[in-house]
Design a protein around this nucleic acid. Sequence first.
DNA 1: TAAAATTAAATTGTATCAAATCATAATTTC
DNA 2: GAAATTATGATTTGATACAATTTAATTTTA
Lengths: 146, 146
Amino acid sequence: MSVSSEDLQGLSLDLYSASRLLIQSFQNLLNEIPLTYPQFLVMRVLWERDGLYVNQIGEKLHLDSGTLTPLLKKLEAHNFVKRIRSEKDERKVKIELTFPGKSLQKKTQDVLSQLEPIFETLDEKSISSLNTSLKDLLDHLNPKSK
Amino acid sequence: MSVSSEDLQGLSLDLYSASRLLIQSFQNLLNEIPLTYPQFLVMRVLWERDGLYVNQIGEKLHLDSGTLTPLLKKLEAHNFVKRIRSEKDERKVKIELTFPGKSLQKKTQDVLSQLEPIFETLDEKSISSLNTSLKDLLDHLNPKSK
DNA sequence: TAAAATTAAATTGTATCAAATCATAATTTC
DNA sequence: GAAATTATGATTTGATACAATTTAATTTTA
């Protein structure tokens, strides 16, 4: 007994809704900071490891350059990152944090910690079970896992 | 012991990635049909119940008129739906399927049934557990559940 | 019942996303 | 080893997503 098309359609709709609703929760808080949710994701990657190339950021977030290029230009316009075209291979663009970009980390973490109380009433088992089965699904869908 | 901000950030990133990857799987199949994923969602709602108003579709999919108005105009341009302004209340626009719009249902279902084999290797328990915890999260996030 | 409040959809502006395109580099083929 | 092919990285393009504003119509209320 396998999954039906109906099951998959329902699953994808719920994932889609939940993803958008959860992003909205983040976005409401992030409004205090000049970052959108995807921009925050990119900054989070860079805070962990600075000086990545565009494609490396894309791999970590499953985003392609068509999404990242305008986003990174926006982050550059805010002076949070520098875009440096590689001299060795001019196809590549390296992304480096500026001082203001680095400074944003603490403020962002403080703001986002405000989300926690909102989720206090949500069963922790439910969260960890969601996490586990999401990882399964991601492994299954991830092109790299071939 | 409650959820930490890190937990929530990881959860939201996984939801976001899984949602986009699963939508891509649908989109790849839907390419055979002149529908994008959000357009398909709207058609699915209408196949289940024809003649809904714009706001009713928006409630079912958590989408607002800024998203739906252009999308519905696109579906109308493809001659899959008719947009009919209500005579009783001229603020409302009713959406009705055309014959081509109705005919699309079977073809779409046939195409999407091709997804099932791809998920055969995925544990069904994992899917149903994902479904359950997603519903929990949706209830928690859904503004209506206040 | 006229003014105020509410409601529904459309419009506007900003920001994603993914597919197609473009440009450059690496590889193959002869 | 030059031309053709393939691969790779980024940019452009078309279609959402959503907040904020506007327009128009209905309902409330004083």
